[in-house]
């Protein structure tokens, strides 16, 4: 990740090799100023350590109420502040893009609406072409559950309008489609089909972060929209049960049926 070889080192490579080995064992050399990427990695490493330590403590606590209180004061926001400082210091660079992504992610997790919004807005304004914003659409969409879809929708619209990067555009459309689908406003819900059709038509061959192409993803949601909404009769299916016996959903007509998609993993 970090490049520790600097130019003068090349000249005195033998000496440098020793210094390098030392640097690896000691972490940063005392007088070497860490470059921005190293600073980022260091904050990230400290945050991960704090979170791992916290999870261990949380798991060890038996009392539910105490667990709850611990969880409310979990580590995170202090690192958002550090990432933000770094983002401001490195304004316009890829390190800033990564740092703003962290600020957005942490603020989101902690339900800090302003922090989240300003980080996302900065990413859109200053880092729209950065490869580091690939996960931004999903992050914004996910925040709809806590901040409210009406709050995150304009951010997705803005991201979609400004990005020329296909994965980001597709991701934004996918999130906008899902927001439409889960809306309880009929006029909004009615836009679901158009979003998924656009996703399929313009980005069908493109694969999402989960490895599935957007054409099949859109097809799945369109099936859900057309056949699996409350008030609809789903198409019949045939399945094989645990005893190797074939059965159909329609065998159960006349009964109240609970279909439970589950797993014990």
């Amino acid at each position: 990740m970090s490049t520790l070889v600097s130019l003068p080192c090349f000249a005195r490579w033998a000496l440098c090799a020793a210094a390098l080995a030392l640097t690896f064992t000691l972490g940063f050399a005392e007088d070497a100023k860490p470059d921005p990427q190293q600073k980022f990695d260091a904050i990230q490493a400290r945050m991960e350590k704090a979170q791992t330590d916290f999870m261990e403590k949380l798991m060890a606590e038996q009392d539910r109420a105490k667990q709850r209180a611990m969880y409310d004061s979990r580590p995170g926001l202090e690192f958002a502040a550090e990432f933000k400082t770094l983002a401001v210091e490195t304004k316009g660079t890829e390190v800033a893009a990564q740092s703003w992504m962290k600020v957005a992610e942490i603020s989101g997790e902690f339900d800090q609406e302003e922090g989240f919004k300003s980080a996302v807005e900065t990413l859109i304004a200053e880092h729209i072409t950065s490869p580091h914003i690939a996960a931004l659409p999903a992050m914004i969409g996910g925040m709809g559950w806590t901040l409210g879809d009406d709050k995150v929708e304009p951010l997705l619209q803005s991201l979609l309008a400004k990005s020329a990067h296909k994965p980001v555009q597709a991701g934004a459309i996918f999130e906008l489609a899902q927001i439409a689908m889960r809306s309880d406003k009929p006029e909004k819900k009615a836009q679901t089909r158009a979003w998924f059709e656009r996703l399929s038509k313009e980005f069908g061959d493109l694969k999402s972060a989960y490895g599935k192409d957007y054409k099949s993803i859109a097809a799945g949601f369109l099936f859900e929209l057309d056949h699996l909404q409350i008030g609809q009769i789903p198409p019949d299916f045939e399945a094989i049960d645990e005893n190797g016996v074939k059965f159909k959903l329609s065998d159960y007509r006349g009964k109240v049926v609970v279909l439970d998609f589950w797993g014990f993993w």
Binding site: F223, L228, I233, Y252, R253, G254, V257, V258, G263
Partner: peptide
């Protein structure tokens, strides 16, 4: 896959006519 399930458990309750309720 067909039923577009992405979270588990996912539950549907159908009435005696087979309508999702």
């Amino acid at each position: 896959t067909k039923w577009n399930v992405s979270g588990w458990p996912t539950i549907y309750v159908l009435d005696e006519k087979g309508v999702i309720r």
